[in-house]
Design a protein around this nucleic acid. Structure first.
Lengths: 213, 213
DNA sequence: TATATATCGATATTCTTTTATCGATATATA
DNA sequence: TATATATCGATAAAAGAATATCGATATATA
C-alpha cells in the first residue's frame, strides 16, 4: 500500500501495537478489533483505528483485523523486514548491556561491531561482537556501508563520536548520552533520554507527596 | 513560586535545559537568554521562554536569566532536591548497567536494593547495592517506604512484578520491559520504550534508502 | 540625554493531535 | 429472511501544543 507521511506519535505507537499483537497471535482467535487493542493498551479506539489505517488496509466491520496480517503490515511499514547493520561506540556498562541483548534482530537491527578508546577492551568479544579501537570507526563504517550508529560514550565525547559517524555516512544515530547532538538535518538523531523519564517520575512523586489525600 | 499544571512535553524538555545550563554554568557569563538556549538545543525561543516562565520568575529584558538561579529553579520544580529511594527488580544486563551507574543522585534517585529470582545472584553486591530474593521485595518496600520501582525483568514477568510493587505502596514505576503495564491510575508507569526509538530509526532509514536524492 | 537593540512576557494565531459522531457493512440470531 | 449489533472508515469538533506578533523594559551606545 501507499504510505502517506505519518506523525512521530503514530510511529511511536506502532511498536506497542506490534508487541501486543504478537502476544495475541499465540491465542485462539485470528481476529482482533481496534476496540480491544485500545482497551488493552489504554488508548482511544478511534486513535488506534486511525493509526492502523495508515499502515494496513485490512479491517472489516464486525470482525476487526487479521492479527497476523496486521503484524506483517506494521513490520513492513517500519522497515523491520530488511535488516540494517549498526555499530556501537562506547563499551561501558550500558554499551555492554546493549551488545549483550539478542532481541534487536526482531527490529531489523544488527550490531556488527563495537568501538572504544580503552586499550584493555580492544579485541574483546561481547556476545560475539568484537571491540575495535575508535580510530578504526570511520574506515569500518565506510567499508561496510553502516547506516546506524549507537552512541553510549560519556557526554563529553558524544559530539565528537557523532561527527565521526556522520562523516562516515551514517544516517541515523541512537544516542544514549544525555546531551543534544548537532548533525545535518538529513541525519536522524534519536536520543534515548532517560533524564526525561526521571524528570516525569520525580515530578509525579513530588506532587503526590506534597498533597496526599 | 506557585506551579500551575505543566504538560508532559514541557516537563520532558526541562532536563534538556538543565543539562545545557549546567554545561554553561562553568563558562564565564552568568546570564543566558532564552534565544541562546533555543538555538543550542534546536528549539523555538518562544517555547523555551514559555517553559521557563512556568518554573522560574527570573528573566529580565536584554539580560536573560541568571544561569545558576535557573538551574536551582528547574531542579526544585522537578523535585530533584529531595532524594527518593528506589528498588530495582531484574538483575540482567540492563539491570546491572543501571545499578552500576552512579549519576542518578543528580536526579534525586537513589537505588537502595536490587531483586532477582536467580539464586546465584542473591547476596551479590553491584556498585554497593545488594541483590535480594524476589520474595523479600514487598517486605523491604513497605519497611523502607520505597516510592519508586525500576523494572528490568523479561516481559513475561513484568506485570507480576508491577503488581507486587503497587501492593507494596510504590507510586511510580520506571519500566524497561517492552510491555504495557496495568496499574491504578494514581501510580505513574513510565515506560522506557526503546522499541519506539528503534521504530523511528528504522522508519527513517527505510524512507531514506527507498528514495535517495 | 536620546536612540537603538536585545530580550522578556502576554496575547493571538496557526498547526497538530486527539476525540466524538455518524453512516455503512458484515455477521449472528430470531 | 428480517433485525440487532459490533465494528469499520470518514468527517467533524475539540483540545492541546507550537509559533508568531507586539508592546514593554533594561542596557549599551551615540
Amino acid at each position: 500500500m501507499d504510505y502517506k507521511s505519518v506523525s512521530v506519535q503514530t510511529i511511536s505507537r506502532l511498536p506497542k501495537y506490534l508487541n501486543y499483537l504478537k502476544a495475541q497471535s499465540k491465542g485462539n482467535s485470528q481476529n482482533i478489533s481496534a476496540t480491544m487493542i485500545a482497551e488493552a493498551l489504554g488508548l482511544n479506539d478511534v486513535q488506534v483505528r486511525k493509526d492502523l489505517s495508515l499502515v494496513s488496509d485490512g479491517g472489516r466491520p464486525k470482525i476487526g483485523y487479521l492479527i497476523d496480517e496486521l503484524i506483517c503490515d506494521i513490520e513492513h511499514f517500519l522497515g523491520y523486514d530488511d535488516t540494517h547493520s549498526a555499530v556501537l561506540v562506547g563499551v561501558g556498562n550500558l554499551g555492554r548491556a546493549l551488545l549483550s541483548y539478542s532481541g534487536f534482530d526482531e527490529y531489523g537491527l544488527d550490531i556488527v561491531a563495537a568501538f572504544d578508546i580503552n586499550e584493555s577492551l580492544i579485541g574483546c568479544k561481547i556476545n560475539g561482537k568484537q571491540v575495535f579501537p575508535l580510530n578504526k570507526l570511520m574506515d569500518l563504517c565506510k567499508r561496510m556501508q553502516i547506516k546506524i550508529g549507537i552512541i553510549t560514550v560519556p557526554s563529553k565525547e558524544a559530539q565528537n563520536v557523532c561527527d565521526i559517524l556522520v562523516h562516515s555516512g551514517v544516517q541515523a544515530i541512537w544516542n544514549f548520552a544525555p546531551v543534544h547532538l548537532n548533525a545535518p538535518s538529513d541525519v536522524l538523531i534519536q536520543s534515548e533520554n532517560m533524564a526525561c523519564s526521571l524528570a516525569l517520575l520525580s515530578k509525579h512523586l513530588s506532587e503526590k507527596l506534597s498533597k496526599p489525600q
